[in-house]
Design a protein around this nucleic acid. Structure first.
Length: 114
DNA sequence: TGTATGACAACAA
DNA sequence: CTTGTTGCCATAC
């Protein structure tokens, strides 16, 4: 059975990433590294970005904007997307200071394994 | 099978 | 603070 490992099925990582992202509540953010960790692939932070691009395209409702880099900044992949992401986060109550988010205050902390 | 790419991260200077 | 380097690993070709 596929279950959570699924390293054999193509796109398994993308689905795991999507699952983790859906667990991040409004008003909180998670770093790419965090998502990789919770997705079961610590160190695959870069792949989270690629996975997010696909996952967001596959599921428009996915809160992809809640994922930021380890510096609390926006890692834009397309012109305009960065401003959109910041706007969406502000709408959820996230505070930006010097173009950065205070991760200590907004970082997502799962109370249970994802 | 091997190489290149990329919405990152950690570290050195 | 900034810039450059290295490690990382799923996908694409």
């Amino acid at each position: 059975m596929a279950s959570v490992d699924g390293a054999k099925e193509p796109g398994a990582f993308v689905r795991q990433v999507a699952r983790v992202v859906r667990a991040v509540p409004a008003g909180s953010v998670a770093t790419y590294g965090d998502v990789a960790l919770y997705a079961g692939r610590p160190g695959a932070a870069r792949q989270v970005g690629m996975a997010l691009r696909r996952a967001a395209h596959d599921e428009p409702d996915l809160p992809w904007h809640r994922i930021v880099n380890a510096q609390g900044g926006i890692s834009t992949y397309k012109v305009g997307a960065g401003e959109l992401q910041e706007a969406l986060l502000r709408r959820e109550g996230i505070v930006f200071r010097g173009g950065r988010i205070d991760l200590a205050a907004h970082r997502f902390r799962p109370e249970e394994p994802i």
